[in-house]
């Protein structure tokens, strides 16, 4: 039962979520008594790819082909499925590309697919069970796959890959993908520079209507900058354009699962909680002691954001100074 992981790269660098997928693949291989190999599509240097060896990948199949430098779900699925012909378990990331790509790969292989694995699988009596969060993190489900071939997509920010030492041989791979398979052509990319991508952030500082107006976000940004955190907001605030849509966290916005989520002036409506309750630690700051968010919080401060946040910035600075 061999394991193949699709390792996504961006601008020649392995994505953070791809290390997590590689680690998941290596651990699954260990559990099932086999080895894990990787497939990489697009231009990348050998030095960068060699990093995968340290996360348990034995061999890398690299299509050093510039056509794959932009994403197309059809062409990528075709290439990955071709390499997966000899594998029993195929692992991808459940990120913006993987969410479309993984189900396509599964159909090509007619393999059962489990999206959004949140922790390492279990393997008992020859049965693999993939663990996934359901109902927006309110429960876990243990999935069984009926087919010999299985496809799993790993939720970003779910695992903390442990770096070991190892080497991975790189082998050239020339997928049988024609130019016509690349049906989508990228016209432009609009990256938010100077910001940490919300869905990849370890720390998130979020604020809501309690801030009273968009002009008061300076302290939230300052706190986020001090901590190296991404900024986020509630739907109410994005809907009135106090903050941009790409900061909206919740059921219909982004789902995040950082190590630390600090919510300032957000009451904690159930739709907001659905987007954040997979965070490891939640801190809530709110003037209203009855705010429902406190029920989902690990730490709480009942108090005015305009008093608490400046103090938090000051205390965090002290902490950082003492730590260095």
């Amino acid at each position: 039962m061999s394991v193949l992981v699709f390792v996504e790269i961006a601008d020649g660098k392995i994505k953070k979520a791809a290390y997590e997928a590689a680690y998941y693949a290596a651990k699954t291989a260990e559990l099932t008594g086999t080895t894990a190999e990787a497939v990489v599509l697009g231009t990348a240097g050998a030095d960068e790819l060699a990093n995968l060896g340290n996360f348990g990948i034995a061999k890398i199949h690299h299509a050093n082909d510039a056509r794959f430098n932009t994403f197309d779900s059809k062409a990528f699925a075709k290439a990955i499925a071709e390499k997966a012909a000899g594998a029993d378990i195929v692992v991808l990331s459940f990120g913006p590309n993987g969410k479309l790509l993984a189900p396509r790969v599964a159909v090509r292989l007619k393999a059962g697919y489990v999206p959004g694995a949140a922790e390492l699988p279990t393997f008992e009596g020859g049965t693999l069970k993939v663990v996934k969060n359901v109902f927006s993190g309110k429960a876990k489900a243990f999935y069984q796959v009926a087919t010999t071939k299985k496809v799993v997509a790993v939720s970003p920010n779910s695992l903390s890959p442990v770096k070991g030492s190892g080497t991975a041989a790189v082998e050239a791979f020339a997928p049988a993908v024609s130019d016509a398979d690349f049906g989508t052509v990228v016209k432009s990319v609009d990256k938010l520079t100077g910001h940490i991508p919300l869905t990849e952030a370890d720390l998130v500082v979020s604020a809501g209507r309690g801030l009273k107006g968009p002009e008061n976000w300076g302290m939230i940004e300052e706190l986020a900058n001090e901590m190296g955190a991404a900024t986020a907001c509630s739907r109410a605030v994005a809907d009135v354009d106090w903050r941009p849509h790409h900061e909206h966290v919740g059921q219909t916005g982004f789902m995040v699962k950082p190590n630390l989520y600090i919510a300032v002036g957000i009451s904690g409506a159930i739709q907001h909680l659905a987007g954040v309750n997979q965070s490891k630690v939640i801190v809530v700051v709110n003037t209203d002691p009855e705010a429902p968010f406190f029920k989902a919080a690990d730490y709480g401060i009942v108090g005015d954001a305009f008093v608490v946040v400046p103090k938090l910035i000051e205390e965090y600075k002290k902490f950082k100074a003492a730590a260095h």
Partner: peptide
């Protein structure tokens, strides 16, 4: 091709520690 063998709910609700 897939089925859910079982579910698990969190053992207890979080206890918020106030500061």
């Amino acid at each position: 091709l897939t089925s859910i063998a079982s579910y698990q709910t969190p053992e207890k609700a979080k206890e918020c520690k106030y500061v």
